[in-house]
Design a protein around this nucleic acid. Structure first.
Lengths: 229, 229
DNA sequence: ACAAAAGTGTTGTGTTTACACCCATGT
DNA sequence: ACATGGGTGTAAACACAACACTTTTGT
């Protein structure tokens, strides 16, 4: 290896902003640290990258350890590399965000975490390390991507109502949308599959259930179609 | 330092996609490697990140060494971390892109480069390492950002004509634009300062010169104005 | 019968596109 | 006088925003 040893003093981690959507609220999964530094404070789940591990594998590994989930939406956002961002040494971290359907999910605290829980995004004011900064950046990315790519569906169960979808967009974008205009827009994109099925046991007119039609979307995309809400 | 030594086997670099615009063509600055691996092949300029150096400083340092330029547009794009992307060891690299006005610029080959030159982006087919992939990713980012942020001006001299600006957008976006519609759009944004000055010595009707009005843009932005071409 | 959320169209306004000719300068 | 790029307006198509009432179910 011709690269001088001077350069192997830096460690490398990933941090994972795991978004979920529950009771019309946008949430993220946080761990409570069992160890110093920042013992007993809430932090993003993350880990060091193994020397023989593909960078993109590390956040997948973290996510699986926490939730058991695989093959969910996960994308790199940015890399944070201030010299003093970790009090114990030089650690450069790559931030990823993932979108999961949090229903029936029972996340488990692992390794140096003493607790794990969903936190409402809009109520988080501080986090360990520079994790608040990282979360904010991931949220910005989510806000901008959710309008130009069909990723919102990842946060919902497979079958959902149009109102649930609208609630989701409102939670992510942080603003309310006009019901009729929203429905016209989303239906005009032609990527929702009508399940001819309805909600049951609700104390009001039951809503129709829809499903994201990925095949149709991929097909349209290959012909130049652009998803835009 | 509580982080085990297992994790200090990875080195870290930055690579810099430096865009310039010249004769209506979008170009990037490449170095020809003087050393193995990939000796005599063209590559992105880059360097390892010093252990006590803020990550964001590294690409600035590289850019300054090459061109003497400071305070130019420079932004992080993504981090590439496949295990085998560097044949000599584990090197994770963070890609940045910068936009410079290449007129009167005399870049110098430095350290392990034997040559340096501007290459037309659309003619580049292969580069050392995974640098073609990195370049493509930066180009995608540029394409999308140039439409929603006033960064195109960074590639032009301070005073420019509307046709030069249109040529620039056409080169970046890779498609031609309607002259009248382009002018209506850009003028309606209200961020160009009319210099009441004209081209000289051209064999046709001389064009008016404009300048990007950064103050006015920042001001409008703070009131919710959105730049969009 | 009431409460609660689902579902549905129209109209005005603003934005985008398509398109062709005259103007000022240098040679 | 000719070649070269600079500069300008209008109309049609389309997209977006604003807005209120009826329907279906459970209690």
């Amino acid at each position: 290896m011709s690269i001088g040893n001077t350069f192997f003093k830096t460690a490398f981690s990933v941090d994972n902003v795991i978004f979920g959507f529950d009771q019309s609220l946008l949430k993220i999964l946080l761990i409570k640290r069992a160890e110093r530094p920042f013992k007993d404070e809430w932090a993003l789940p993350g880990d060091l990258v193994y020397p023989d591990e593909h960078l993109d594998n590390a956040p997948k590994r973290v996510l699986k350890e926490l939730t058991g989930l695989e093959n969910v939406f996960l994308e790199q956002v940015a890399t944070f590399g201030k010299v003093d961002r970790h009090p114990k040494g030089r650690v450069i971290t790559v931030a990823y965000y993932s979108l999961v359907n949090s229903a029936n999910l029972n996340p488990k605290a692992y390794s140096f975490a003493e607790d794990i829980a969903w936190h409402e995004v809009s109520k988080i004011t501080t986090l360990a390390f520079d994790h608040k900064l990282i979360m904010d950046r991931c949220l910005e990315t989510l806000k901008s991507k959710v309008r130009s790519q069909p990723i919102g569906f990842e946060l919902l169960p497979q079958k959902f109502t149009l109102s649930e979808l609208q609630d989701l967009y409102e939670a992510v974008l942080g603003k309310s949308l006009d019901k009729r205009n929203f429905r016209k827009k989303i239906m005009s994109l032609g990527v929702l599959l009508d399940q001819e099925e309805y909600q049951q046991g609700v104390a009001h007119r039951p809503a129709k259930l829809f499903q994201f039609d990925r095949l149709r979307y991929e097909d349209a995309k290959s012909r130049g179609f652009i998803f835009e809400i």
